[in-house]
Amino acid sequence: MDLILDIKNLTMNFGGLKALDGVNLHIRQGEIAALIGPNGAGKTTLFNCLTGIYAPSSGDILLYQPGAKPKRLNGLKINTITSLGVARTFQNIRLFGGMTVLENVMIGRHARSKSGILGAIFRPPATRVEEKAIVDKSYAILEYIDLAPYVNELAKNLPYGAQRRLEIARALATEPRLLLLDEPAAGMNPQETRELEGLLVRLQADHELSILLIEHDMKLVMNLARNIFVLDYGEEIARGTPLEIRHNPAVIKAYLGEEADAEIG
């Protein structure tokens, strides 16, 4: 199967602290993979390196593109990486709170549309067509993600679970090939988590989307991911199928070391 993302020997230093130390990770096209590990293991740092928020200290992040040479993402600007087809959600929700739900998704269309200042002022037919397409496409995404009833609400007034889904909707609007989800189920009740699981399965099937997921809800991870990578103290300590990870002594130790009641599987 073809790779979409290949991370080789990625290291990220903050001053003297090694937040990531020689991490290797790869995702195949159309696959759901998961990144797990105790708090502070460097999972979000990895996302930040991948999306251009941090410039990695060393190593390679390669994004494979159909019919082109793989693109090295290291040190590219955040928006460039988004345009290349990598989108993400944030662990601590970062919606545009003062904008409506629809507008939040419309912002996501920015990378896939192009009218400029003159277009805005004179509003020629091309701009009007594009603007309508932005609205319609955004609304379609909201319907797909079951947020249509909230369409004109302010994002900050949404219930928590809906905010998490809106983050996903917004990311989808950028038409990603690789979607990075940072703890999408955090703070959700079991019902909402089940719905999220259904949504992600649907997403992967309908859009052939590759998904990398950071998640603490092990049930969700084990149900969804085909491939799991485990980080601890910035180093990869295990990788494999859910079954392999469940019985890996290093993983159990890393989790039990952190908190005794962490459930593996």
Partner: peptide, 20 residues
């Protein structure tokens, strides 16, 4: 317009705006 929305998004959350 598209530009105006981008400005407002920038004001609301600079990082998320770039990630879009």
């Amino acid at each position: 317009s598209r530009i105006g929305r981008a400005w407002v998004a920038l004001r609301e959350d600079e990082l998320a705006c770039q990630a879009m």
